[in-house]
Structures are given as structure tokens and as C-alpha cells.
């Protein structure tokens, strides 16, 4: 009904955090605090991945809802909002399916970050061994 809205909302929050983090990293780099020979994946880049997963998924799911006539181009945009019973069902779906979707995407992203960090660490070790 509108489960994609939970992921879209999380994507908006992640975008704000990503922008703040990116500014911090640029500042830190300019002041020379974080200059090391080791390659590291910045948090802002990882947050970009999460944002792309959440937003990409939400856009394609929104299309599915348009396909099924659950999202319409006129106010209130969600057909379930036309009566209280459907609205209650929609909020229930958002709280169950929507939240689970957002949580699973975040969990997959977290695993992805751990694996990416491990790969970068291994690559750093290989480079330092060769040197």
C-alpha cells in the first residue's frame, strides 16, 4: 500500500547525515588531520551506498504501487487514504512490511560495509608487504 515510504523516509535522513559527514571529511582533509598512506573507505561514501539502495528500491516499489493503482497523481496520492479503514491497514503495513524492508536493507548495507572494509584492509596489507 505504501511500504516504500518507510525506506524513502530513511533515505532522506541518510542523505542529511551523508551531507554533514561529507562536509566534516572535507574539513578534516583540508586541515590535514586524516592524512595517512592507508586507503580507507570514508563514511560518507558508505552512506551513499545505503542511500542508493534505499532510494533506488523505494522508486521502483513506488512504480509497482502506481501499477496497482495504490498511488495516484492527485491528492492525497495514496488511495488507501480515502477511508479510515484502508488508512489503518496502510499504516499497519508500513509498520510491519515497510519497517522490515528498511531494516533488512540497512542490515545488508552493514554487512557490505564490513566486507568492503575487510577487503580494503587486506589490500593495504598486500601493498605494505610489497613495499
Amino acid at each position: 500500500m505504501a511500504c516504500f515510504l518507510v525506506s524513502a523516509a530513511e533515505a532522506a535522513v541518510v542523505k542529511v547525515v551523508e551531507t554533514v559527514e561529507e562536509k566534516k571529511e572535507i574539513k578534516a582533509e583540508a586541515s590535514g588531520h586524516e592524512h595517512t598512506e592507508e586507503v580507507k573507505i570514508p563514511l560518507s561514501r558508505k552512506l551513499k551506498w545505503l542511500n542508493a539502495l534505499l532510494l533506488g528500491g523505494a522508486v521502483l516499489l513506488m512504480f509497482e504501487h502506481v501499477w496497482h493503482g495504490e498511488v495516484v497523481p492527485w491528492f492525497p496520492f495514496l488511495t488507501a487514504m480515502s477511508n479510515a479503514e484502508d488508512a489503518a491497514e496502510m499504516f499497519h503495513e508500513m509498520a510491519t512490511v515497510g519497517v522490515t524492508m528498511a531494516l533488512l536493507i540497512t542490515a545488508v548495507w552493514a554487512v557490505m560495509c564490513v566486507v568492503a572494509d575487510a577487503l580494503v584492509k587486506k589490500s593495504n596489507e598486500e601493498v605494505s608487504e610489497k613495499a
Binding site: F4, A52, L61, V108
Partner: peptide, 13 residues
């Protein structure tokens, strides 16, 4: 990212 994001969401569905 777009296709994997959507796949995860449809998997939950």
C-alpha cells in the same frame, strides 16, 4: 544499487 534495493524490498514483501 537500484535493482538490489528493489530486490531486497520485494523479498520482504
Amino acid at each position: 544499487f537500484m535493482y538490489w534495493g528493489a530486490s531486497i524490498m520485494w523479498f520482504v514483501d
